[in-house]
Amino acid sequence: MTDLRIEQVDGDAMIRDWQHVHNAIIPTAALSLDEVRERVERNRLEVAYLGDVLVGCSTVRPPTSEASVATVIARVLPAHRRQGFGGALYERGLAQARKLGADVVETVVLESNPEGLRFAQTRGFVEVERYLLPGDSVRFIDLRLA
Score class of each variant (00 low, 15 high):
M1G: 09
M1N: 01
D3P: 03
L4Q: 01
I6S: 07
Q8R: 15
V9Q: 08
G11I: 12
G11S: 12
D12N: 06
D12R: 06
A13Y: 11
A13L: 14
R16F: 05
R16M: 09
R16P: 04
W18V: 02
Q19W: 02
Q19M: 07
Q19R: 07
H20G: 02
H20M: 02
V21S: 01
N23F: 05
N23M: 07
I26G: 01
P27H: 02
A29S: 14
D34P: 05
D34W: 09
D34E: 13
E35D: 12
N43C: 15
R44P: 04
R44H: 13
L45V: 04
L45A: 05
V47D: 00
A48S: 10
A48K: 10
L50F: 07
L50Y: 03
L50W: 10
D52N: 14
L54Q: 03
L54M: 07
L54E: 02
V55C: 04
G56K: 04
S58R: 07
T59G: 12
T59K: 15
R61M: 11
P62E: 13
P62W: 14
E66I: 09
A67K: 13
S68W: 00
S68K: 12
S68V: 11
V69K: 12
V72T: 10
V72C: 11
V72R: 09
I73V: 15
A74P: 07
A74W: 01
R75Q: 08
R75T: 01
R75S: 07
R75A: 04
L77Q: 09
A79N: 10
R81V: 03
Q83L: 15
G84S: 08
G84I: 12
F85L: 03
G86Q: 03
L89K: 05
Y90E: 05
Y90R: 02
Y90V: 02
Y90M: 13
E91R: 10
R92I: 03
R92D: 09
L94E: 13
L94V: 15
L94M: 11
L94N: 00
A95N: 05
Q96S: 08
Q96R: 13
V104C: 06
E106V: 11
T107Y: 00
T107K: 10
T107I: 12
V108E: 14
V108I: 13
L110V: 07
E111P: 04
E115R: 07
E115G: 10
E115K: 02
G116M: 01
L117Q: 01
Q121L: 03
G124A: 10
G124M: 11
F125L: 08
E127S: 05
V128Y: 00
Y131R: 15
Y131A: 14
P134I: 01
P134M: 01
P134Q: 05
G135Y: 02
S137E: 13
R139Y: 08
I141C: 09
D142L: 14
D142T: 14
L143D: 00
L143T: 01
L145P: 02
